[in-house]
Design a protein around this nucleic acid. Sequence first.
DNA 1: TGAAAGCATAAACAAATGTTATCGTTTGTA
DNA 2: TACAAACGATAACATTTGTTTATGCTTTCA
Lengths: 180, 180
Amino acid sequence: MISLSEQEALAFMSRCYRRQFKRKAVLSEDEKIIDEVYFIEKGIIRVKINDLSGAEHTVHFAIENQFIADYRAFITREKSSYELEAIEDTEVIVLPKAGIEWGYQSLKEGEKLGRLIAEYYFTYLDRRIEHLYTLSPLQRYDLMNQIFPNIHNRVPQHMIASYLGITPIHLSRIKKNRLS
Amino acid sequence: MISLSEQEALAFMSRCYRRQFKRKAVLSEDEKIIDEVYFIEKGIIRVKINDLSGAEHTVHFAIENQFIADYRAFITREKSSYELEAIEDTEVIVLPKAGIEWGYQSLKEGEKLGRLIAEYYFTYLDRRIEHLYTLSPLQRYDLMNQIFPNIHNRVPQHMIASYLGITPIHLSRIKKNRLS
DNA sequence: TGAAAGCATAAACAAATGTTATCGTTTGTA
DNA sequence: TACAAACGATAACATTTGTTTATGCTTTCA
């Protein structure tokens, strides 16, 4: 996204570190201030939220070679709405807030990188909203398997149904329906 | 969001101009490359999209003192998914792409401003997605009237229903239901 | 100013989706 | 290894939401 000298890259990476999580471990709790972004080297993470009636919703998945965080809470410094949970044993690189801010200020094109990243994730959410308006749950199910390759073989179906905003029973039904 | 000298502000504004649209006029067409962002001085704009079956969905509203554009298409340089339509006679300030890019490169804190803007709109969409998962249509109807003050008195109800992802008949029903 | 179009609501019905319960299988763990 | 928990599918039933049609009211505009 930007040009970066090897020196700069090393200086940034020296501010990050590796961390491991067991299956079902919580990387990031809701109601907390968020000071870390994660890059997934191995594993799967789901982002969940509880509504007022206590129901749990899966808002997002993240797999290998993707960044994940409650980026909104990271930006706004408000309490996190989401909980990040490892679905498989997971290995991440932790990018602490201090390191990221160092990057914005000290890398030659740091602010530009920050803009391009924020723009990238904006476009991701904007596409999601477009799809929520224009696609059926089954179409979004298929799309999801493109975006997160093969995810339906790594994640229980009820979490996928939750992500789609429908019940697992209903997802089972529409998948069966497609065959006929 | 950033510190800006008066000189810088004037130089930027000299790159913008004012434009007026009649009710029902189209500011920005879908399938086009997007080179403008608008700031609304007066009026209301809705952002719409058509799905494959031809149904029309209202994805967003924008009112006085807000910026509006297909920001995704503006960023990615891909064809626009949305159509922007004036609901009332509307007066906007046009910020051409060339002017915005001049700002990123020439304002002292231009790139930082760009990052903060992208981050701001990211948080807006992230909140919307949170609400889509956790709130009922009626709760989102109420929230919407806070976000766009008094909008239900300025916009036909079937557009609001479309924004909420339900039929106008159903919106009428749940509003009636609330009274009892 | 009058006709037409747009709009909100209502009722009756149809379709989609959720709820509860059951069953057989797989998975995790003691 | 054995047992409990998690999981996916299915059926029966309940609820929600959409569709169609109709009505009366307002707005628009020629």
